[in-house]
């Protein structure tokens, strides 16, 4: 009983119950519930900042699929975070157009001013700095994306 209560609390930290219910309802009426895996992982990430193991389990349980089927999807995408990140993830483009116009200096500057290296999170848990491939903003290079905003 106590375990059940604890479990529920953990799950609502990952995603509000009404969203879980809404995914469950959708999964019940579509022919291929697997197609919601990425959507649900993204929903958990937008609520919880990243997807812990429990997030994988919650996704599997909600959609009625196997945890391994969720995990093999979650680990493929670079924008699904399976490790803790800061509240704001800064993606700095290091592809050709940004590189040709000085992106390395921007990365350098951000590392210095945040006091972290690429792949790290600031001690206060606010920013994570990650490299990314081309963001599709080549005309406005150099580009970076903070959260979902380019």
């Amino acid at each position: 009983m106590a375990r059940g209560v604890k479990k529920l609390k953990v799950m609502t930290e990952l995603l509000p119950q009404e969203q879980v219910d809404s995914f469950k309802a959708k999964a019940a009426v579509i022919a291929h519930p697997h197609e919601l895996i990425v959507d649900l992982l993204r929903a958990i990430q937008s609520h919880h900042d990243w997807v812990p193991d429990d997030g994988v389990l919650l996704t599997a349980e909600t959609l009625g699929v196997l945890p391994i089927e969720v995990e093999e999807v979650a680990t493929f995408y670079d924008k699904i975070f399976r490790r803790a990140v800061g509240r704001r993830v800064i993606h700095v483009c290091d592809s050709i157009c940004c590189w040709s116009i000085g992106a390395e200096m921007i990365t350098e500057h951000l590392q210095k001013s945040l006091g972290i290296k690429l792949g790290e999170t600031t001690a206060d848990g606010v920013f994570t700095l990650l490299p990314t491939c081309c963001l599709g903003a080549c005309g406005e290079a150099p580009a970076m994306m903070i959260g979902l905003t380019i």
């Binding site: 291929h32 697997h34 959507d39 999807v73 670079d78």
Partner: peptide, 25 residues
């Protein structure tokens, strides 16, 4: 509308289809 979650390989059409299906792309 399907919102993806990164990786260039998804632009390859069969990889994209695996992605839409919710399999490993």
């Amino acid at each position: 509308v399907h919102r993806s979650a990164g990786r260039y390989i998804l632009g390859e059409e069969t990889s994209l289809l695996n992605g839409l299906e919710g399999g490993r792309p």
